[in-house]
Design a protein around this nucleic acid. Sequence first.
DNA 1: CCCGCCCTGGACTTGCCGGTCCATTTTACG
DNA 2: CGTAAAATGGACCGGCAAGTCCAGGGCGGG
Lengths: 211, 211
Amino acid sequence: MSRSGRSAPRLTAKGMATRRRIVEGAAQEIRERGAAGTTLDDIRARTATSKSQIFHYFPGGKEELLLAVAAREAERVLEDQEPHLSDLTSWAAWQEWRDAVVRRYEQQGVDCPLGVLITELGRTTPAAQALTGRLIDQWQSALRTGIRHMQDSGEVDRRLDADRTAAALLAAVQGGVTILMSTGAIGHLEAALDTTLALLRTAAPETRPGT
Amino acid sequence: MSRSGRSAPRLTAKGMATRRRIVEGAAQEIRERGAAGTTLDDIRARTATSKSQIFHYFPGGKEELLLAVAAREAERVLEDQEPHLSDLTSWAAWQEWRDAVVRRYEQQGVDCPLGVLITELGRTTPAAQALTGRLIDQWQSALRTGIRHMQDSGEVDRRLDADRTAAALLAAVQGGVTILMSTGAIGHLEAALDTTLALLRTAAPETRPGT
DNA sequence: CCCGCCCTGGACTTGCCGGTCCATTTTACG
DNA sequence: CGTAAAATGGACCGGCAAGTCCAGGGCGGG
């Protein structure tokens, strides 16, 4: 982050406000119409700015702007799971996290801004891929920490592969969300989460997926 | 399917061949560059056809063509899981299916033609959403049948909710694939599948995810 | 109070891409 | 064969959207 700015013009307070307004407006527009369907003019209109402003703050054009939006949305994804995600220290906490995730996506419905950005940007831009990778790492890491904590407190079998289970949990969420986005059905997300969590709960001495 | 053809011109053998060539070529192009990034000219060039041919066979233009491609890819997804998907009658069969899925996506790597189509088409076109819905239903139904079979033969607890577990399994695959597409890591798919299957295997009398 | 650097507006350019049109060739079939 | 329908080629159109440019405002620091 910060300004690694080559000839980066120093932003005044006003400038920063405008910049933020653009990112925020773009994010909303994209949530409603997808990244491909969003034009700079749409953004310009919604944010009451002019073409030159967009290019002033995002010299790299649309791609740079979309990347900024993606970064913002990635933050949001994790933020929206707090404070639960960072405190998976009891079964009750896990349940609360599970409910928070379901609730969040239920109300978001078909609009998955990040998903859109990933599929439409990630394919082509290495920077976007890196962003996604980082998000997944952080997310999985938080889940792994939670599982380890449960193991330390003796509520989950120590022989369970925490990292692998965290990966499965993350995939469960992703898959549920993907299906939600495609069909509008929230059931799959719930089923996937509950099933994977059930495994965690029933973790008995010999329960241990794959290697 | 079939011709519900209004003023549908009867296709000659040559015509059908050309039509198929277009769909096939479009599918490949999309796999490589995404639906949004694929232009009719790209398809025209790759399939050695002319603009008028595309519109001749797909009067609805690009949208109709993409829909045809999506339908084709949806078929493929299920086909590629055969003969395993229709014969989930033993633990060995389940394992083979699991391996087939992993292998298929491993070699496909980042290119998920259907995913692309869904995210870029499904949002806007109800027809595409219907297509997705049907695919998911069929897939989940096949898995459910497999689970029921295992229950009938007494290898899985009868109290397990077969439909819900099938949904979880499907979500696991989807999630794993989504992450594979984003990052190139196959591990999540394996972890998600193995974990969910592990639950199936450990289905003991009182093991039962949520209601 | 004044100089300069941001910030802003919006017209303009450029290229692309979906879609149209019509002329021509090929095929089906009696 | 001959004719009608189908298949094909490719020039052309129109619109849209990303990106450029320059002519000003306006704010802040010296």
